[in-house]
Design a protein around this nucleic acid. Sequence first.
DNA 1: TTTAGGG
DNA 2: CCCTAAA
Length: 564
Amino acid sequence: METVVDIVGNEEAKVEDSVAARNKPTPTSLQMIADPVVYQLVRVDGNGRLVPATEDEVMEVEDLLEEDKSENRFVSDSGQTVECNTNCEHDLDKLQFKASEGLPLDNVKLDDETPNVPPDPVADFEKVNVQPEQSVALLAPPADYVSIFQLEGSPKPSNGLVENETSTSAIGTSSKPDFSTLKGEIHVDNLTVKELQETFKATFGRETSVKDKQWLKRRILMGLTNSCDFSTTTLVIKDNGVVKKCKEETSNSVEHNILKDPEVGSTSENHESSPTFHDSEKESHSNATGMKLQDYPTVDNYGNEDTNTEQRATKRVRKPTKRYIEELSEGESRDSCAKLISSVGHRAYSQPSTNMHVTPVQKVGLDGRWLIRRDSLGGSGVQVPYVSRIRRSRPRENFMTLMPVTSSDKLYTERKVELEELKNLDSNENSDDDTVAMPAATGRMRRKHHRPWTLSEVVKLVEGVAKYGAGRWSEIKRLAFASYSYRTSVDLKDKWRNLLRASFAQLPAEKGMQNSRKHASIPIPAPILLRVRELAEMQAQVPPSFSASKFAGHTGSDRSGVHE
DNA sequence: TTTAGGG
DNA sequence: CCCTAAA
C-alpha cells in the first residue's frame, strides 16, 4: 500500500486540492509506505544512509512527540531538524515507534534510481521503498536534512542521551562510502556522467545507475554539503570532510552539524568562522516558530552568547482560549475540513509577511492518508516542496528560485480573483505583493502592508459576522475568507471595528449628508452600512460569547427583515 | 493561538 | 495596520 504525502503550500488548500494532486501526481509528491501504521524510526547517518534508530533515540523522539503533538517537527539536541511524518494525524497518539535493532539496510534503502524524480533540487523528494513487512514512516531525505541526534562519527553528546550503538558497520551490508577517493577539488560541473556516478558512490556508498547529470550533481552536492545550496559546484575535500568552496562560506556544513553539540561546538575552531552561517541559523530558528528549541549555545552577529537561551529552553504550557474550548465541545462542526484543521491546532492565520511562514499544520484528508502542509508566503499561496522546508538555511532565496517551478494554478486563480477585485475599484494599486512598498501617486512610499478593502471583501465580512457572529474572527476568516490569505482574523476584526465606527458616524448625518464620506477608499453602499449597523446593534444585544446559536437565530430572522 | 483594544 | 496584553 502506498500513500502519497502531498505538500500543499497554499494556505487555502483544501482537501480537494490534495485529492486532485493525488490523481495527478506532482513533483511535490512523496511516496512512501504508510500502511500498516507501524513506524520505524530511522535516522540518516553521516554516510547518507538510513540506519535504524536506537532505543534511546526512539525514546527521545517519543518524548518530543509527547511534548508537542501538534508539531511534526523538532530540533534535536544537536540542533538538527527532525521531521516525522505519520499517515494520520489522529494516530499520532498511538504512534508506534519500533527500534528494531538489526534491520538490514537493504530493506530500507533510498530509491535513487527512480527516474521520475524531477531534476529540481528542492522539489526533489526521496522515495523510501520498504519491504512489505517493514514500514518506514519517518521521512528520510538526503542525509542532510534529517539526521536525528547525531551524525555518524560525531562525538558523543555529553548528556548521555544518545548511545549510538547502531553503527553502520554493524548493520550495513552494502558498500560504504569512501571519501578517500574524493580528493582535492571537485568540479561537479565538469564531471562526466561516469565520474559523477563514481563520486556518487564515494559519497553515498552505493552504486547508482542514474545517468542524469543534473540529478547526480545535485545529489552529490547535497550529500557532500549537507544542504540544498547549489550555489557552489566546486567542492574541496579535506580530511575526509567536505568544504564548500564559496566566497566567504568556508565552513563545512557537515562539521557544523556535528559540532553543534554544545560542548564540542563551543570549542569548535569553526565557531565564528562565518557570520552568514550564524545568520542563517538564527533565521531558521525564527522561522521554526513553536518548535522545540534546544539551548545549545548560539552566537549572534557580535559573537555574544544568546541571552534568550534560558527562555527558549522552557517548555510551552498553553491554556486554550475560551473560544477554543468552546469549539472543541461543540462537537461536529459545519465544516469537516475546518474541523480537522482546528483539531490539529493551527497557525494558519498568522500574519502574512515577506518571510516564509512555516505553518506546521498537517491535515488529514478524507481517506485519512493525506497530509497537507499549509504555508503562507507573503500572502500568496505557493507550493513549496517538503525538502525545501526542512533545510535550515536561507529559505527565502531558495523559495524565490522556486517560484516559477512550484507556483500552482491556485496562485493564478488567486491573482485572477484579486485582479477582478481591483477592477471593481478604480485603481490597481497593490495588485502585486502586498509586502512591497508601492510608490503612491504622490511619489511617497506607501505603507508596507497595505491592501485596500474591496467591496466584496467588506460584503463577505459583513456576511461573515452575520453568520458566525462578531468576535469569531478566526471562524469568519476560515470560512468566509478562505480565499483571502492576506486578511488575517485580526484584519477582519479591525475592519469590522472601522465599519462600525463609520456606520455609527453615518447615523446622525444620514438625513442630509449622504455623500460626505470623501476619503473613504471604498464606497460602501448604504444598504451595507445599514446592515452593518443593524448587526452592530444586534451584537450589542447578544454577545456571541454568550450564545452563538442564540445569536445565529437572531441573525437569521433579522436578516430577512433587513435584507433590502 | 485567539481576541480585544490601544496606538 | 501593528503591537500587545489577556485569556
